[in-house]
Write a protein that binds this DNA or RNA. Structure first.
Lengths: 333, 333
DNA sequence: ATGAAAGCGCTAACAG
DNA sequence: CTGTTAGCGCTTTCAT
C-alpha cells in the first residue's frame, strides 16, 4: 500500500476519521482508551500525517521563506543557520532561496514563496525588487538593508560601525585611508560613516567601488592594483572582511608591515572569519541578535496579521556593533 | 478580498474553472482567444496559484529537503547554495534543515520532511540516524559520508586526499606528523589515508581527536595545548581547514616558522577559506561537482521511482580531490 | 474546445 | 466523548 492516510488509521483503530484527527491535534475531549487505540493504529501502519493536506485547510503552513544572496557567504550562512534554528524551535520550516544578487531571481522566488503559502519571509537580498514590492501577501522582514524600504528592517549600526572603524584608524595615526566597498550609493551607510569620520578629521576621502557582480578574483585584482599604485595609502577600511583579507594578502606579498606601515580593518566579523583570521581587525555585527530580532519581528507580524492586517510599516531596528581590534590596527596607548 | 482563487479567475474571464486550470497547466486544447481572456483575468486580479492545493492532488510537491549540520560552516554553506541553485533551475524548492549534529534533530527533520511530501532529500549530516533509517518514503542521497549506509552516497576521495596530503608532508621532509581530526572511527577514511601513508613511511602515527560536540574555542585550546607540549612535531595534517588554521595561529604566536619548522595542510578547500587564507595548503574537495552529482543522483531517483520503486542501493560515487599547496608546505624541487 | 462533477487528505462545524 | 457532513483550492475523468 502507498502512504497510509488518516482514513486508514481510522479504519484500523475502528473509529471515525474525525477522532483520529482529534488525537492528532490534541483537540477536544477524547477518552484515554480511544487515544491509545489510535496511537497504536498509527504506529502499526507507520502513519505520517500529510502536512500539505493539513495546511490546505486555510490554516497556517508554518513555512517561512528565506531569501539571501547566497549562503556560501559566511555572513548569510551564519544568519541562515541561526534563523532556521530559531524558527524550527517555534515549529516553522524554512524554504531557502539564494538569489545570487539577481533581481529577476528575487522576483521569481518571491512569487514562488507566496504561491507556497508561506506565513512570512525574511530577506537579506540587496536589490530593490523586494523593498519596492507592492502589496505582498505575506509579512516580510528585511535584514541589513538601507532605510526607506516599505518593510520593517533589522540591521546593525552600519553608520556607527563605519564611523568608529575609520575614527580608530585615524586615532592610530592613519592619514590616507582608502575605503573599499561593493557599490557606492547615496544610502550606503557604511560609506557615510566613513565619510563623516574623514571629514571630521579633514582628510581626503577615497572610495573604491569593487562592484557587486564581479568575481572574487576580479575584486582581488582591483584591490591589489589599487594598492600597488597608491603606496601613499596608510590604512584600509573595507566594507567586508573579504576585501580586508585581500588587502592583508597584498601587504604580505609586498612585505609591507601590518599594522606599522598599513593598517587594515574590515566589516562583518563572522565567526568563520574570526576563527580563520583572528588578527584581522573588524567591525563585528551582532549576527545572533540580528537573527533573533528578525525572527521575533516576523513572528510578531505573523501573529498580528491574524487579527488585524496591520503592516509593520517600514520601522527599523538598529543593533549595536562592536569592534574587534585584532592586530591589524595599531594600538595607541 | 483575500487571496484570489482559480474560481475567481474563472468568473472574471467568464469561463469554467477547468478551463483556467487548463491554461495554467498548458494542458489540452484551448483556443487562443480563451487563453488570452484567462491570462488577462489572472493579471487583473493578481492571481497566484496555490501551490499547496496543487500538490495535494497527489502530484509532486517539487520540494527537496536539505539536512546539513549547519550552513554556518562554509563547506555546507557552499554546498547548500550550489544545490539550491541547481534544484531551482529544475523547478524544485528547497527546505533547509540545520541539524547541528544532534541526532534527535535529524530524526525530527526527517519526519517533518516526509510529512511535507518532499520528493527527495539530500543530507550531509554526520550521525547514523539517517543512514540507518529503515524504509524512507522519499529518495535520499547522502553527501560526504562513510560507505556502508543503505543510501547512495556522493563524496570526494577522502582516502586518497588524506593519503596524498600526508605523503606530500613526508616528501617535504616531515617525520613527525600529527593528525587532528573530529572523531576517530573505524571508517574514517581521512584517518585511514593518513595511517596508510604513515605506515608506508614507517613513521609513528599520532591522531588527536578534537571532538565533534566541542566548541571552536575548545578545539583551539586543544590544538594549542597539544602543540605546546609536543615541540617535536614537524607537520600537521588537519581533517579540516579550521583546525589547520588553528595550527597556523599557534605557529604565529610561538614565532615558529611555517613551513620551515612546521608544515601544515588542511582539508576541504572551500572558496571561503581559500579566499581568506590562500597560503594554507589544503586538500580541495570538488564542491561544485559534489553538489552537481548529488542533485543529478537525486533527480534520477525521483524520476525512476515514478515508474518502479527501485532504491538506489547504497551505491556511491567518489569524486577526485586536488591539492592546493599554498605556502604552508615546503616545496621540494 | 469547454464544462460538470468528483475527489486529493485533512479539519471544522454541528449533532448526538 | 464521538461520528456525520462539508469543504479548503485545485486537477481530472468524463461528457458534450
Amino acid at each position: 500500500m502507498a502512504q497510509p492516510k488518516l482514513h486508514d488509521v481510522a479504519r484500523v483503530a475502528g473509529v471515525s476519521p474525525t477522532t483520529v484527527s482529534r488525537v492528532l491535534n490534541n483537540r477536544g475531549y477524547i477518552s484515554q482508551q480511544t487515544r491509545d487505540k489510535v496511537y497504536e493504529a498509527m504506529a502499526s501502519i507507520h502513519y505520517q500525517p500529510n502536512a500539505i493536506a493539513r495546511s490546505l485547510q486555510g490554516a497556517k503552513a508554518h513555512l517561512v521563506g528565506l531569501i539571501f544572496p547566497t549562503v556560501a557567504n559566511p555572513f548569510y550562512g551564519e544568519l541562515a543557520s541561526l534563523i532556521e534554528s530559531r524558527l524550527a524551535d517555534e515549529g516553522y520550516k524554512v524554504v531557502l532561496c539564494n538569489s545570487q544578487d539577481r533581481p529577476e531571481a528575487e522576483q521569481r522566488y518571491l512569487d514562488m514563496l507566496v504561491s507556497h503559502q508561506v506565513d512570512g519571509i525574511i530577506t537579506g537580498a540587496h536589490s530593490d525588487v523586494i523593498a519596492n514590492s507592492p502589496y505582498l501577501a505575506a509579512p516580510l522582514v528585511t535584514i541589513d538593508r538601507a532605510e526607506g524600504g516599505r518593510y520593517p528592517n533589522v540591521r546593525c549600526d552600519n553608520l556607527q560601525g563605519a564611523f568608529d572603524a575609520t575614527r580608530l584608524l585615524i586615532a592610530s595615526g592613519a592619514r590616507r585611508i582608502v575605503h573599499f566597498t561593493s557599490t557606492q550609493s547615496a544610502n550606503n551607510l557604511r560609506q557615510q560613516g566613513y565619510l563623516r569620520a574623514i571629514e571630521q578629521a579633514q582628510l581626503i576621502p577615497d572610495i573604491i567601488e569593487l562592484g557587486f557582480a564581479a568575481s572574487a578574483e576580479q575584486h582581488r585584482t582591483r584591490v591589489f592594483t589599487y594598492l600597488d599604485r597608491h603606496r601613499e595609502v596608510d590604512a584600509v577600511f573595507a566594507s567586508n572582511d573579504s576585501y580586508a583579507a585581500m588587502a592583508l594578502q597584498w601587504a604580505e606579498q609586498e612585505r609591507i608591515c601590518v599594522p606599522d606601515s598599513l593598517q587594515i580593518i574590515g566589516f562583518d566579523g563572522t565567526t568563520t572569519v574570526r576563527g580563520l583570521l583572528p588578527h584581522l581587525a573588524t567591525v563585528v555585527q551582532p549576527i545572533e541578535d540580528l537573527a533573533g530580532a528578525a525572527v521575533d519581528r516576523l513572528l510578531h507580524l505573523i501573529n498580528a496579521s491574524e487579527t488585524v492586517t496591520v503592516n509593520g510599516e517600514g520601522s527599523s531596528e538598529v543593533l549595536p556593533i562592536t569592534i574587534h581590534r585584532g592586530t591589524t590596527v595599531r594600538s595607541v596607548s
